[in-house]
Structures are given as C-alpha cells and as structure tokens.
C-alpha cells in the first residue's frame, strides 16, 4: 500500500498479453528523488512494468497510485500530464517529424509559447539537437536519437522519469553520456526508474535495485549491497555482466523449467 511520502506505488499489478501473463502481482514503491534500477533477464517483464506504470499496458489486476491518488484507469497522456515521463525502449522517435517538432509535440499541457521556450532550452542543453533542429529525426544517429528521446521526455519536466534500456545499441562513449544525464537528473531531484542491461554501471547510479524474473520482482536491495553480491551475479545475473571484452551479454529466452534463461549471446550494443 502507498504511504504518504511515496511518489509512486504499484500494488499487486498483473498484466497479460492475451492468454500469456507477463506480470504476476508486482509491488513496487518509489520514494521521491530516488533512482530505482530494474534488472533481470529478457522476458522478465521489465518493459511491461514500465509500460504499465505509464499506462500503455492496462492492468488486469492490482492498482497504481501517484502521490496517493489512484491512476490505474488513467490514459497515458493523462499520466504524462501528472508528471510521469517515459523514454521507451528503442527510443521510438517520430522519424517523419523534425527534431524540433519532436520536442514541440511533447508536453502538450504547456501553452504554445512556453513549449517553444522549453524546446529551445533543451536544444541548448543538448547541443547536438540544436544543431539538427530542422533535420528529420529519422536521419539522426542512434546516440542522437537517444538524446532526443530523453529531451522529449524532459519537455514536460517530469517528476518521475522511466528509462527503458537507455543505452541499448549505443557506443560506450554515448552510453557514458546517457549515464551522465541520468546522474545529473538525479542530482536535480528527478525520480528515476531505469531498466538497464549494463547492470554494473546502473547500480553505480541507483539507490536501490529490483531483480525481476518471470514477471515477478524477486528481490529488492540497496544498489551498493546488490553490487557486492557476487553470488547473486554468478547464479542469476552473471550472464548480463560485461565480459572481458567489455560487452554485456544478453540471455536467449529459452529454457529452464523455472523460466530462467540458460544461454547467452553477445549484446547488439557491442556490435
């Protein structure tokens, strides 16, 4: 149950894709100003959880409260206006719109003039976006797209920012920049939930971390304590740790009777 100081409370949330259940009674409480990392193998339900929080996936059971208010039935655009932003997996840039237009269509709650001011602020903050403001977003590089996805989510100055695999497919130098932005947002008081495959790095930034597996949060720990748990990494998350070449590996969803992933392959981000 939500307590008065909580920003977000997910209570016994269940989500299904047709007959396939993706979340089983997930409960997650988030305090203002903290970074919560969500880690786990592919198919664990991490992205589904973020999509449920932002309203793209309806709950079949359970509820979500925002500052104590039940928002379970609200549409995504209503949740965005309350102060929840999502940087989606694969960025989902609007490729036929220009960089500036991508920003201007965000934060529709802002009056038009303020929206332009905010867009200009973000294009100054992320210089590469300002340099490409009239360019079609579909022509940006992966790193530029990710910055645009983050800037777009920041247009409405969200109190809670959800980031789904924000460094997926990015060169290490760009990934480092993204983590720099995450740390900066954290310092400025933004609350963040980050789904990330680069576990070691995200645990450096996070206050706490949830481990998800087969649609459940199986453990929540302070990030630094989790980072020290080599036994846990070896048995459960080891296949997601960076290899000697510095590349994380991705699990191939297959297998075990308990739903764990038994095989790994090199992450696309290393290519």
């Amino acid at each position: 149950m939500a307590t008065s100081g909580q920003l977000l409370a997910v209570d016994s949330a269940e989500v299904s894709y047709g007959p396939i259940r993706a979340l089983y009674g997930v409960t997650l409480n988030v305090e203002p100003g903290e970074i919560v990392a969500i880690v786990g193998p592919n198919g664990a339900g991490k992205s589904t959880l973020l999509n449920a929080i932002v309203g793209l996936r309806p709950l079949t059971r359970g509820r979500i409260t925002w500052r104590g208010r039940d928002i379970t039935g609200l549409a995504p655009q209503q949740r965005v206006r309350l102060g929840i932003g999502l940087v989606p997996e694969h960025r989902r840039i609007l490729t036929t719109l220009t960089v500036e237009e991508n920003l201007l269509v965000s934060a529709t709650a802002l009056p038009g003039r303020l929206r332009r001011v905010r867009a200009n602020e973000l294009m100054e903050r992320f210089e590469v976006l300002g340099e490409n403001r009239s360019r079609r977003a579909g022509l940006l590089s992966g790193g530029q797209e990710q910055l645009l996805a983050i800037a777009r989510a920041l247009m409405g100055s969200p109190e809670l920012l959800l980031l789904d695999e924000p460094t997926l497919g990015l060169a290490p130098i760009v990934a480092a920049k993204v983590f720099g932005i995450i740390d900066e947002l954290h310092q400025n008081g933004t609350t963040l939930i980050v789904v990330e495959q680069n576990i070691r790095r995200v645990l450096e930034s996070a206050d706490s971390a949830c481990i998800m597996r087969t649609g459940r949060i199986v453990e929540r720990q302070q990030a630094e304590r989790l980072a020290a748990r080599t036994d846990l990494f070896d048995s459960f998350l080891g296949d997601l740790l960076p290899t000697e070449e510095g590349c994380p590996q991705r699990p191939v969803p297959s297998p075990g009777a308990d739903g764990t992933c038994l095989h790994t392959e090199r992450s696309a981000s290393c290519d």
């Binding site: 999502l86 490729t95 719109l97 237009e101 269509v105 965000s106 409405g156």
Partner: peptide
C-alpha cells in the same frame, strides 16, 4: 500548428504520441 504536428505524430506512432502527452 501543434495540432497538425500532433496529427502527424499520431499518424506515425499512436502509442508514442500518447506517451508524449498528446490526447488521442
């Protein structure tokens, strides 16, 4: 117009448009 941009955004990817706060 922002309305027009919103229509184009929704025409390209409705879910993303909603994520940006655009009212469907």
């Amino acid at each position: 117009t922002v309305y027009g941009m919103s229509i184009r955004a929704a025409a390209e990817d409705f879910d993303t448009a909603r994520l940006l706060g655009i009212s469907s």
